[in-house]
Design a protein around this nucleic acid. Sequence first.
DNA 1: CGATTATATGATTATATAGTCATATAAACA
DNA 2: TGTTTATATGACTATATAATCATATAATCG
Lengths: 103, 103
Amino acid sequence: MNITHYQAEVLKTLGQSTRLKIIDFLRLGERCVCEIFPAIGEEQSNTSRHLNMMVSSGILFRRKEGVKIFYALKHPEIMEIVDLATLIMTREITGRHSLLQAA
Amino acid sequence: MNITHYQAEVLKTLGQSTRLKIIDFLRLGERCVCEIFPAIGEEQSNTSRHLNMMVSSGILFRRKEGVKIFYALKHPEIMEIVDLATLIMTREITGRHSLLQAA
DNA sequence: CGATTATATGATTATATAGTCATATAAACA
DNA sequence: TGTTTATATGACTATATAATCATATAATCG
């Protein structure tokens, strides 16, 4: 097990569209599963799996309150990473677009 | 195809240990395949596949010079993302460690 | 206690991915 | 032209992943 394996774990966790939708929604703050899955338009069971996976990867906090389980972003850097990825993506898309226009 | 699919493409590309090794090596600057695969200790064919994949994801530049193909990081933000992931990872590992000590 | 609500999980399926080996392509050079 | 060197790719295998459906667990409340 290399150091890159641990780095990869964090980044791989962020590199999936359902999980990105969850992260985006959790920018608003702590939310329970019952709020998250309708907000992102995924099944309860699938959402639950991704949430648990993100806790294991060290990306989310989990807090229990009665029947409800609340999840929240654990590190502000997660939002920074997503924002940087958005920036790269935007630059790539406009770049490809201007190449298409030039052709 | 959602916007999160494109973000995920960038982040998923970064979330794999062989590719992280390549990215780490390319911090030194532009390098050809013949330098990259021995440096990261992977097969030529596997390295080539990852390099091509990273070009498709918009993460690397490719430049041809004679028989050699040179690859380089395309966006400085890629290094920022990797560094932020390292930070999160480090914080997680030390956090888990202090929890173990407390137990 | 029985019903309801919130969440997690087992089993399964379809798909994606990484890696390997052998081989193809293509430039350079004797 | 034939050989060498650098890179890419086809075919294949093993493994991982996401999603779904049905069901289990566990807290709450009448």
